[in-house]
Every structure is written in structure tokens, then in C-alpha cells.
Write a protein that binds this DNA or RNA. Structure first.
Lengths: 193, 193
DNA sequence: GTTTTTTTTTAACTTAAGTGAACGAAATTA
DNA sequence: TAATTTCGTTCACTTAAGTTAAAAAAAAAC
């Protein structure tokens, strides 16, 4: 299980056995069942997550309606907003599949950083990389229509469309479930011509 | 001029005179005139920017049309995508006002990090913070209509609406300039009732 | 200070998303 | 397995954004 993490990290740094042991000893590996809510609106938390296997989503509840804004799957990490600015969370995080993830808080990070400074470099690089990727996704979203966004997702993350309920996908694409249905029918219609 | 930077940084770390001098000696402070293009599509570059005064924007040119995706103003930083993944840039960066900014590349960063490890901590924290903020902005964008996005911007960044040309604002809001005009007229109409 | 260019607004028309309701399919629960 | 809830799709209707064109306003260039 932890090999998934070490494999991923090996793309960025070479870890000694001692360093790996230090990570394992933090006891950050967890298995969570489908449907489990990791964080609720209004809660304070210091936990950041990194998905090793499975899928989690973040969503807001606005006027009683769920608005799904992100999915995190294999080798993707999430530091909730509330961890960064120490305020109650504005959104929920829950598992849409049985999921294996790591859970870590800033205190644990500092502890590791002090012992092994290369981890701080790793975290800096990862978060800079993620920031650039995130900015690009946002750019793409802005300059695309809902239909283009869907087609784009079909190209770039076909798995998501399979493993995620459609009504959750819809708000992820910035539209209503009915519009997603219609849009898919429209695409199918076009492809027949 | 550099005080703007050190003032900002003082919120995160305390810098010694020696450290400040090390930064100044990197010769990263630049003044650029309105209209200057800092980066063009297809170019490779290693420069990241941090705006001390003024405003820069990133935009794509798609089918001959400019698509503005972001503005960076006072105390906001930008590491272009092409710096992170070493590919030619997909977008342009230019100044929409006379601007004072810092320009730094990863090599300079590494040099500073080696001399003063606290800078790496600073950069990690800044980019984690930015990532969380960025994610939240994206969330807000997804769950809002164009009209809500405009009203939201009016609340949160009224300065942008003043200092930025409307047609650039429009694509930033994910719509066409004509739609922005109409939307503003609609809001004005509503407020009269 | 006038001309030229760029930007913003307005309008008419087209296309697509939002809304509310209904229906069948699928998944959950009893 | 039957009952119930949740989910996905379809429909009719409303609202708003995209498109094309033109005019007005503002900014830049001469």
C-alpha cells in the first residue's frame, strides 16, 4: 500500500530506507469506505489528504443543493482551505469509492521537514507544480463552453466520467444535471450525422 | 521600491539585513511600461513574476481572439506554466499598466534557498496558500452564473473593474464582451426597480 | 485638434443553459 | 422481493449567453 506513495515520490526525490521508515512511523495510511464523509461544513480540521487509491470529492451545499467542485483520484492531493486559513470549512469532503489515502497535518509535516529537509523541497515543488496545473485547468474552464468542457474531460479524464455519478459531474462542469444529459444527447446526435 | 516586497514578506518571515541584501543583490527589481509583453506564446522562459505595483495579465490567442484568464496586481505572483514543465508557453503575459515587478528564475531561487533555507519554507507556504486560494476561486467560478461572478468581483476586487478594459474582464468572467455589457445593463435595470 | 483606431454599447436573431415537472431505471432499504 | 428513494433522461418553457452587425464613445495617433 505504501509502495504506491513511495513510487510516486520517487519521481521527485530518492528516499533512503530511514526516510521511508520515518514516513511510515507517522501512521498516515488509512482505508475509508465509500460514502464516508471526511470533512463537513463548519468543521475545523488540520488534515490534508493524498489519495493512493479510490476517489474523493469536495462539495458545497448551497440552498440545499450539492455543488461538486472537485474530484481527487490516484496520486492527487488536497489541502482543504480550512487548514490553510484556520477557519471552519465551507465545504464537505467525502469518498465516492472505497479509498486508501494518507492523512497528514501541518505539525507532522514540520516534524518531518526538520528531520529531512528534502521533504520541504519536495512539498514546495509538488505544490508549485499543482498550482501551475490548477491554473491551467481554470484557464481551460474559462475559455470553454460546457460542451467543450465535457469533450475535454472525455479526452483527459475518461475514467472520471465512468466512475462518478452524472449529477456530480454536472456541477463539476459548471452546469445542471439536465443540461449535461441534453448536452450528451446533442453530441450523440451530431456524431450520427 | 524593494520595501514593498520586504513589507509583504514580513507577514511571513523576519528577514535580517544580510538576507535582504542577498535578495537585492540578485537584481530582480524591474520597471516595465504599460503595453510591454513579458512572454509570448511559443516562447520558452524560466522567469516567474511578482507584482509590486501595477497590473499584468495572462491571455491566450485562440482563433485570433484574445482570451484573458488572469490578472495579477499588487503583491500577487505568477509562475508561468512553461517554467514549471519546461515547454513553450501557450499564453501571453503583458502589462496593462506601468508596472514594477520582480523577475526570478528557479536557479536564483535554488541559490537563495541554499544560503537561506528559510526562503524555501517561505516559498512553500506562499504557494500552498496560493493554491488554496486559487482552488476556492475556481470553486466560486463553477458554482456561479456570469452575473453572480460579476457581482462577486464588484465586491471582492472593485479596483479590477476600474483599471481593466471591459473586453478583457469579459473573458476573465468566462463570457463575451457583448454579454458583459448586457449583463451590466440588466443589473442597472434591476436596481432601478 | 482632427483623424483613425479601439473599445463599449445596443439591437435582432440564434443557440444553449436554467427551471419545473414527469417518467423510467437503478440502487438502497425494509 | 417489494417498497422506497435516488438518479438519469426527456419535455416544454423561460432566461440568458453567443453571434453578427452597426452605432456610439473613448482613446490613441497623427
Amino acid at each position: 500500500m505504501q509502495d504506491l506513495l513511495f513510487n510516486f515520490l520517487s519521481k521527485y526525490v530518492t528516499l533512503t530506507e530511514e526516510e521511508k521508515k520515518a514516513i511510515i512511523s507517522l501512521d498516515i495510511f488509512h482505508s475509508v469506505k465509500k460514502g464516508t464523509t471526511l470533512l463537513k461544513e463548519g468543521q475545523k480540521s488540520n488534515d490534508g489528504y493524498f489519495v493512493l487509491k479510490g476517489c474523493i470529492r469536495t462539495y458545497y451545499i448551497i440552498d440545499g443543493e450539492e455543488k461538486t467542485t472537485a474530484f481527487y483520484t490516484e496520486m492527487e492531493g488536497l489541502t482543504p482551505h480550512c487548514v490553510v486559513d484556520k477557519t471552519p470549512s465551507q465545504y464537505y469532503i467525502s469518498c465516492i469509492e472505497d479509498t486508501i489515502l494518507t492523512v497528514a497535518n501541518p505539525e507532522m509535516e514540520v516534524e518531518i521537514f526538520n528531520k529531512f529537509p528534502k521533504f520541504e523541497t519536495l512539498c514546495r515543488i509538488l505544490s508549485e507544480e499543482l498550482l501551475a496545473k490548477q491554473q491551467f485547468n481554470f484557464d481551460e474552464f474559462k475559455i470553454s463552453s460546457p460542451e467543450q468542457r465535457y469533450l475535454n474531460l472525455l479526452q483527459k479524464r475518461p475514467d472520471l466520467i465512468q466512475r462518478v455519478p452524472q449529477h456530480q459531474l454536472a456541477s463539476y462542469l459548471g452546469i445542471k444535471p439536465q443540461s449535461l444529459s441534453r448536452l450528451k444527447a446533442r453530441i450523440l446526435e451530431k456524431s450520427k450525422e
